[in-house]
């Protein structure tokens, strides 16, 4: 009991130390603060959004930024500032839960493949390779157009497609661990496969999988906003950056503010997540610099 408690405390301490290492470099600190800012904004923005995000007013179309409308208004007379601060909520929620799903299934399948090896491993990796060679955008568009664009479709679909890469990372990490002496001795002690996975393998591959998951998060956000941009993501009038950019793009020569505000929101969030993920990888001592974006 006391041992477990101590371990819990150690885990907390470890998390704290990782965050401290991440924040000790300027790029990590910037990334963490941007991410924190966006998370707080997404949680609290409905409390202080100055206007109704779906209130259409033809008399206020394409107003330039002013003290009344900080970021101007869009082609339907909606306040761009309101829609921009609300615009990250769906994206953050969908991609966060999507990443968790990707981490879970990618991690477990990868560890399983690494552990069993042999024929099963070969077959599964072939199938994963085949899935990797279908452009994600085609598969996502097909699923979304046949099943609809609700978050209940988007979250598992994104989670599935971005989990493929995690399978490879988890498998490779498991391969590295599995030949080590402590696994052999655990087997010799007669531990079950499940207990070996939980107690011996997982602690050793966890870092690599989590870093990959953090990276996937930013790519998933990119994918999600691309879908919205193409008109296959969240449906209007929900405020979403990708959708806002695609709507405001046509009138960009008259009203650049309506396109620049969501661009700033989305770019800063993606850069924030990327910097955080990089700092996270460095803090855990994992080198991602030679990896391709698959």
């Amino acid at each position: 009991m006391t041992f477990e408690k101590e371990q819990k405390k150690n885990n907390l301490q470890k998390i704290f130390e990782v965050i401290k290492t991440m924040a000790s470099k300027p790029s990590g600190l910037i990334g963490l603060s941007i991410l924190l800012f966006h998370v707080i904004l997404a949680i609290t923005s409905p409390l202080y959004a100055p206007y109704d995000f779906k209130a259409i007013d033809p008399t206020l179309m394409l107003q330039a930024p002013s003290s009344e409308f900080w970021f101007g208004t869009d082609s339907l007379g909606r306040d761009v500032f309101t829609r921009t601060i609300l615009g990250g909520r769906t994206a953050l929620t969908v991609t966060f839960f999507g990443s968790l799903i990707a981490l879970f299934w990618g991690g477990s399948l990868g560890i399983f493949c690494g552990l069993v090896g042999g024929k099963i491993d070969d077959v599964v990796m072939r199938i994963i390779d085949a899935f990797l060679s279908i452009p994600w955008i085609l598969a996502m568009l097909l699923i979304v157009s046949l099943l609809g664009t609700t978050t209940l479709v988007l979250i598992p679909a994104l989670g599935f497609f971005y989990g493929k890469g995690i399978v490879r990372v988890a498998r490779a990490a498991t391969h590295d661990v599995i030949a080590k002496d402590f696994i052999v001795s655990a087997r010799a002690r007669g531990h079950s496969n499940l207990s070996i996975i939980w107690n011996e393998i997982l602690p050793n591959v966890r870092d690599a999988i989590m870093v990959e998951g953090a990276m996937r998060w930013s790519w998933m956000l990119l994918g999600f906003s691309s879908l919205s941009f193409l008109g296959f993501g969240v449906s209007p009038p929900t405020p979403d950056w990708g959708l806002m950019i695609s709507n405001a793009r046509g009138l960009m020569s008259f009203a650049y503010w309506a396109v620049l505000a969501p661009i700033f929101g989305l770019s800063s969030l993606i850069i924030g997540i990327n910097l955080t993920a990089d700092a996270f990888a460095k803090a855990l001592g994992i080198d991602r610099s030679t990896k391709a974006p698959v």
Partner: peptide
């Protein structure tokens, strides 16, 4: 390079149109 690889394609393309073309 970090900026241009993290920002989504549709954003950099839209910004290019806005700056260079418009």
């Amino acid at each position: 390079t970090i900026f241009s690889m993290t920002i989504p394609e549709f954003i950099s393309a839209t910004l290019l149109i806005l700056i260079v073309a418009i």
